[in-house]
């Protein structure tokens, strides 16, 4: 029970950071999604079911404070955390978290998340939908991948693993 309460607290904290601090660190208009590294952590640490539920809950929370498309973040985060949970391996949790694999899984989840999210988000906008989706997805994915390097090093130190393995 305490574990779920802690997760909820982390989710709320991340939501506050995402909405208050992150907009100030945009690069060429792209923002990282700090929920993805956390959802990947949940997926690799606790498995696919918990990751999927967490993704849905966090996405819904994000949708509730967003100005439009209720259910969009819930859908995209459910799918991306499901993908992240797919890499859960009970015997290799620490090795997965403390190595470059973590960053790669974050980027893969991020690609899935951003593709679904922006495909719906950009509906009806002027210009090429595909181009807009590809640009936004690549920018956001790369930025999210870069910031996921920090927790990777953190896990690597904590679990005494080599990040290059």
């Amino acid at each position: 029970m305490e574990q779920y309460f802690r997760s909820a607290l982390v989710a709320v904290l991340l939501l506050l950071i995402q909405t208050t601090f992150i907009p100030y660190v945009s690069v060429w208009g792209y923002l990282p999604d700090i929920f993805i590294p956390w959802l990947v952590y949940v997926g690799l640490r606790r498995g696919q079911v918990e990751a999927t539920v967490s993704g849905f809950a966090v996405g819904l929370l994000q949708d509730l404070v967003a100005t439009k498309f209720l259910g969009l973040a819930a859908l995209s985060k459910t799918l991306s955390s499901f993908i992240a949970g797919y890499f859960y391996n009970e015997n290799q949790i620490e090795q997965s978290l403390g190595s470059y694999r973590y960053v790669l899984i974050v980027m893969l989840s991020s690609v899935v998340h951003n593709t679904v999210y922006f495909l719906i988000f950009f509906q009806g906008v002027e210009g090429s939908l595909l181009m807009s989706v590809v640009q936004a997805s690549i920018g956001t994915t790369l930025y999210t991948g870069v910031i996921s390097v920090m927790p990777m090093f953190g896990f690597s130190q904590r679990y005494h693993t080599s990040w290059a393995q």
Binding site: G71, A74, L75, T78, L79, I120
Partner: peptide
């Protein structure tokens, strides 16, 4: 969860 999300999107 995907179905719930899609329903929410439609609402």
């Amino acid at each position: 969860l995907v179905i719930i999300s899609l329903v929410l999107l439609s609402l």
